[in-house]
Amino acid sequence: MTGVKATKWWRAMILKLVIITILGFAIFGPLAGTLLWSFAIKWYWPSALPQEFGLKYWANALTGRSQVLDALWLSISIALIVVAVGLLVSIPAGYALARFDVPWKKVLLVLFLMPQAFPQLPVFINMSSIFYRLNIAGTVAGVTAAHLVVSLVYSVWITTATFKSIPEVLEDAAINLGASRVGAFFKITLPLAAPGLIASAIFVFLNSLDEFTGTFFVGAPYIQTLPILMYTASMGYNMQAASVIAIMLTIPSLVFMAILERFLKAEYIRGLGV
């Protein structure tokens, strides 16, 4: 009896170990490989580990007038412009969609969704041909527009949901006590919507920072954002440079994800407390 039980226990244990190992490799394998590559000077097949470690590629990327730093600042600048324009559009749009009976509301929302409904490649190829005619292909404006097309749908939807979650009666109460509609919006609704708006802004920022396809078709070869540079590096078999860029792209995502989680939690708690 005990023998049978022991065998069963071992079988379950081995199965668990196998599954955990596979999952571990799937999640951490590529990350570990990238990390190793970024610190490698020489790594020839079939060796399991690099033959020579060093900080040469990190130094190249981070010091002097490096292409990587230029691309990083460009990426961040574009992402910030996309966030600013995105908020300027999605705050009024989201508020209107949440509060008023906007005519053609469904059509509008579907229109926003349109670019997401088709495969990205044809959408961006078409966009690039349109942008060439408009003379904004290969410019920061063109790339910003491409990024907005991708992120606006999310930011408008998140913003609409955020404004919808704030009871209209809170604005009524302010107006009843003498506030104008605009005053009530800025003093009551906007502060209450802040967590949702920040979440949406972070989402848009990260989306723009990592965006590749649109930037490639609309901006190449003049606009060299970080993902484009990483693509070029890995195409040229410069795995070290590509890995360094990959890690640099991961860091803001991780930081903002942590912030995002805090804000979403705060909003959640507020929702419960009111």
Binding site: V169, D172, A173, I175, L177, A179, S180
Partner: peptide, 15 residues
């Protein structure tokens, strides 16, 4: 906002 009425809402509507 010009009426000078003051309302207490069912849900209180405290900010």
């Amino acid at each position: 906002e010009k009426r000078n009425t003051a309302m207490v809402f069912q849900s209180y509507a405290l900010w």
